[in-house]
Design a protein around this nucleic acid. Structure first.
Lengths: 137, 137
DNA sequence: GACAATGTACGACATACGTCGTAGATGATC
DNA sequence: GATCATCTACGACGTATGTCGTACATTGTC
């Protein structure tokens, strides 16, 4: 790892709460702050304004669109989940691989296994699939 | 993703600069702040005190040991790289897998490929190896 | 022993994010 | 139309981390 780059400022990833909110939005297609809160914030014991604030920040970051509907807003994702997740995965992966990709890959596989052994099959399948279509099938 | 857990406070991961410094320490075995700075901070255009501060924080976090040597300190890692990297990988991976592990695995493989296609081989090998010895060979 | 060089200690500021609380606006209800 | 419920706007605080600068201490050198 060189850390020569002074700190990338990708507006993409974001924190866990933001991602959880965005995820819910992707699943619902469109939703009010209240709905998102009911699904994400509330079960986590968070205040309604916390959810609202997150939605607000996502809006500022241009990750969600919002339209007024009466006194409230209806939010909808502005970025495609696939695109976002891809970028997010690349960012997280880059940090993980660092200067010793080979070793890191082994560690990565171990981690996958420790989280859920059955994912090894999936991993194998995914690699095979990737091999079959190096493009984007 | 449920985000039910209010935010883990693992003292492990840390940021990129901290990880870069720790990595250098693992590589060198033991080193002075000046040495680390020469290897990590300087090439990144950082001030010496920045490197020193990072080392200081790593010390506070109990990730490095330091012994006085004259007016300076000699640092040495306190945690094994393997252990640390494993925990780090698990943390990063957990965030990546989220609520749709299957989809995430595919995205993950794509990301690996986009970063370095040859790593797919490595990934395959690692999975196979993991299969052969589910323990810790 | 005075001085320059080099270290450490530490406070400070910036940003990203999680997390609330309050205030004010707006729509719904009787 | 007065009242109540619900939203949004926004400021604030806490923590983690990157990033410096300054002050103070220590060491090595004439």
């Amino acid at each position: 790892m060189s850390y020569i780059v002074p700190m990338r400022r990708l507006r993409l990833p974001g924190g866990d709460l933001e991602y959880a909110v965005l995820t819910r939005l992707w699943e619902l297609g469109l939703a009010s702050a209240r709905e998102i809160h009911t699904h994400v914030g509330e079960p986590a014991g968070l205040a309604y304004t916390t959810t609202a604030k997150v939605l607000d920040r996502l809006h500022v970051k241009g990750l969600v669109i919002r339209e007024r509907k009466g006194r409230a807003f209806i939010f909808r994702p502005k970025v495609a989940r696939g695109i976002f997740d891809q970028a997010r995965a690349r960012t997280l992966l880059s940090r993980l691989l660092g200067s010793r990709p080979l070793t890191a890959v082994a560690t990565l596989v171990e981690a996958v296994e420790s989280i859920d052994p059955t994912l090894l099959d999936e991993l194998e399948r995914a690699v095979a699939a990737r091999r079959r279509s190096p493009d984007g099938t």
